[in-house]
């Protein structure tokens, strides 16, 4: 019988307590979302609701116009994520495998974009989109989303494509294939693991985006979920049960996607930042 390592036992205990503390907010939100107003006033914070008040969800869904905001978020995310990633992958291929004059300069210019805080550029973005007549349109928000998604994705995918031996591309070129075919037939299938990671990462980022949507989607009929939640908080801040139900409904899709695809997610996140 091995002697227990007391250092590890103590460490484990501390980490479990810390993790409980870390998820406590989620538990609190979930519990509140299932309580009636009376219960919120009368019971302690971690008391279980006597009868789960599912009606909070139904009411928040209706009053917060969730059907519309949910649909807008789905449409924008489902167009932006695949389209943006395809454009990034194409550019990354060109920068990694083709001999293009000045490609390092182009790459540096793109890399710089990973660091631009777009939160500072909301006003010129608004006036740009406005001058194109695209305020309150899906296109008006999808295009800036793609623009600010390109740098990180190109950075990661170019790194990935660079490690594919050049001989492979050259052999295919000699066989008469052109770069478009090589990209589509060879590199795109090859990069599926990296793409999967970026899809998950981008899905969550797009789903959660708030600041750009705030300035571009001003008509409540075009609002995405984060905007809808913000407005709900403004209007029904004291309907605590419903407010918390609204939070749960906003957060749940991203949380589910993360929990299912955890492995890919972390891969995509660390691919660009930390490698030796």
């Amino acid at each position: 019988m091995k002697r227990p390592d007391w250092f590890l036992v103590a460490l484990w205990t501390i980490l479990v307590i810390a993790a409980a503390l870390w998820v406590a907010p989620f538990v609190f939100i979930l519990l509140t979302s299932l309580k009636t107003e009376a219960e919120i006033y009368a019971t302690t914070v971690f008391a279980l609701p006597a009868h789960p008040a599912w009606s909070n969800y139904a009411q928040a869904w209706g009053r917060g116009n969730f059907a519309a905001t949910f649909l807008n978020s789905v449409i924008i995310t489902c167009i932006k994520v695949p389209l943006g990633l395809l454009l990034s992958a194409m550019a990354a291929y060109a920068l990694a495998q083709m001999r293009i004059p000045g490609r390092n300069t182009v790459f540096l210019a793109i890399l710089f974009g990973t660091m631009i805080p777009f939160q500072v550029l909301l006003a010129p973005l608004f006036s740009l989109v406005n001058s194109l007549g695209l305020i309150n349109t899906y296109v008006g928000v999808i295009l800036p989303y793609i623009a600010f998604g390109v740098p990180y994705q190109v950075f990661v995918l170019r790194g990935f494509f660079r490690h594919v031996p050049k001989e492979m591309t050259e052999a295919a070129l000699l066989d008469g294939a052109n770069h478009l075919t090589i990209f589509w037939r060879i590199f795109l299938p090859l990069s599926l693991p990296a793409l999967a990671a970026l899809v998950i990462l981008d899905f969550v980022a797009t789903w959660n985006e708030f600041a750009m949507a705030l300035v571009i989607l001003q008509d409540s009929g075009r609002w995405t979920l984060p905007l809808g939640l913000m407005s709900f908080q403004g209007q029904f801040a004291s309907a605590y049960g419903q407010l918390n139900a609204a939070i749960v409904m906003t957060v749940l899709p991203a949380a589910i996607v993360y929990l299912i695809f955890q492995r890919y997610f972390i891969g995509g996140l660390t691919a660009g930042a930390v490698k030796e």
Binding site: L87, S88, M90, A91, Y93, A94, L95, M98, I100, V106, A109, I110, G113, I116, F118, L121, P124, L125, S127, L128, L143, P144, I146, A147, F148, V150, P151, V154, N178, H179, L180, F183
Partner: peptide, 23 residues
């Protein structure tokens, strides 16, 4: 081929990220 592969991403990035930055 280079233009087709690189162009769309550069165009989106140039217009909706670099331009506001300069603006």
């Amino acid at each position: 081929q280079a233009v087709i592969l690189l162009g769309p991403a550069l165009l989106a990035y140039g217009v909706f990220a670099v331009l506001p930055f300069l603006d």
